[in-house]
Simulated scan of single mutants.
Amino acid sequence: MNQKLNVGIIGGAGYTGGELLRILINHPAVELAFVHSKSQAGKPVYSTHTDLLGDTEQVFSGEDTAELVKSDGLSVIFLCSGHGESAKFLAENNVPETVKIIDLSTDFRDESNGFVYGLPELQRERIQNATKIANPGCFATSIELALLPLAKAGLLNQDVHVSAVTGSTGAGQALSPTTHFSWRNNNMSIYKAFTHQHLKEIRQSITTLQAGFDQAVHFVPYRGDFTRGIMANVYTTFEGSREEAKALYADYYASHPFTHLSEAPIDVKQVVNTNKGLIHLEKHGDQLLITSIIDNLTKGASGQAVQNMNLIFGLPEDMGLRLKPVAF
């Protein structure tokens, strides 16, 4: 592609908006048309995302969004506002059909209103032909990556058990009793046990590959005392050997650039600040334990959104996303 994509961001002051900016200002095929924020209008982007000082002189726009989305040459907009805000935005703004939409909220993950669920490891071809993408949830991404190969083989025939922990950025920037440092630091807790909102899209994705799946998914989420990353430990009955499971997973993810099978046990720092999903398998009796790790802000949100953008516009899937992990 010779001409750069003109990209707009709605809701650029939050965690996902900031992470999206960090990726896009270094993306070789992108030109930022605007970054909109109601709360930070007129201020430099680096005044909110302070690590971007020296990287961009972009200023948050507070202009009427109805005019922004009609900007000449606009290629795609990312919706990074809170849940419920994307549906409201689309109801109030007439986005031209020529402008692609990538929504990072929960509003259209049921594929309503013409949206395609944007998990490339599940339906890359549909994403390539889509005009509107519903970006998956962070917990959903990590758990779905753990289960898709089994679903594709029709092997999810018993209940699935999930225990997963996420960093504090998964809760967004709005303060609550459980996001304050003094509460979160050196602390852990369970929340939304068996009722988490991502269960709906997890089941939707599984049944896309294994139509008859009607087993329970027992999901217990934890709040971790770290800032970013997800580790999901998933187990279910598997009659084959560990070697047979490894072959199944290696074959499923062979053509996907970001999801990799690890022979050694994995840890969260291997994926923090990257768009990778790493998977480790263990067999215990008749149970297959699948450990899946991602960064909730990249593969679980903004990185995956850019991956979807790349697919829609025929760019290399990994363009702008070869990011270095923190490691230490």
Rank of each mutant, 00 (worst) to 15 (best):
M1N: 08
T16R: 03
L20A: 15
L21N: 00
P28L: 05
V30H: 06
L32M: 15
A33P: 10
K38L: 03
K38E: 09
S39I: 02
S39T: 13
K43W: 08
K43F: 08
S47Y: 04
T50L: 07
D55T: 09
T56L: 07
T65I: 15
G73C: 11
L74P: 13
S75T: 02
H83D: 15
L90R: 10
N93D: 08
K100S: 09
K100H: 03
L104P: 04
T106Y: 01
T106I: 12
T106L: 03
F108E: 01
F108N: 01
F108M: 05
N113E: 15
E125Y: 03
K132S: 05
A134W: 00
N135I: 04
N135Q: 14
G137K: 04
C138W: 02
F139G: 03
S142F: 00
I143E: 06
E144F: 03
L147N: 04
A153Q: 08
G154S: 02
N157L: 12
H161N: 13
V162D: 12
S163D: 05
T166G: 12
T169G: 00
A171H: 14
S176M: 12
S176Y: 02
P177I: 01
P177K: 00
H180I: 15
R184G: 01
N185A: 14
N186H: 14
Y191N: 11
K192F: 00
A193W: 08
F194A: 12
H196K: 00
Q197R: 08
E201T: 14
R203L: 11
I206M: 10
T207P: 05
L209I: 09
F213G: 07
V217D: 07
V217W: 06
F219K: 08
R223I: 01
D225F: 07
T227N: 13
T227R: 09
I230P: 10
M231D: 12
A232H: 06
E239D: 13
G240P: 04
R242C: 13
E243I: 05
E244Y: 07
L248V: 08
Y249S: 01
D251T: 10
Y253K: 10
H256T: 06
F258E: 12
H260R: 15
A264P: 02
Q270M: 15
Q270F: 03
V271H: 12
V272N: 03
E282S: 06
Q287S: 12
L289T: 08
T291D: 09
I293F: 00
I293D: 06
G300D: 05
S302G: 03
Q307V: 00
I312M: 15
I312G: 01
L321K: 01
R322E: 10
L323C: 11
F328P: 13
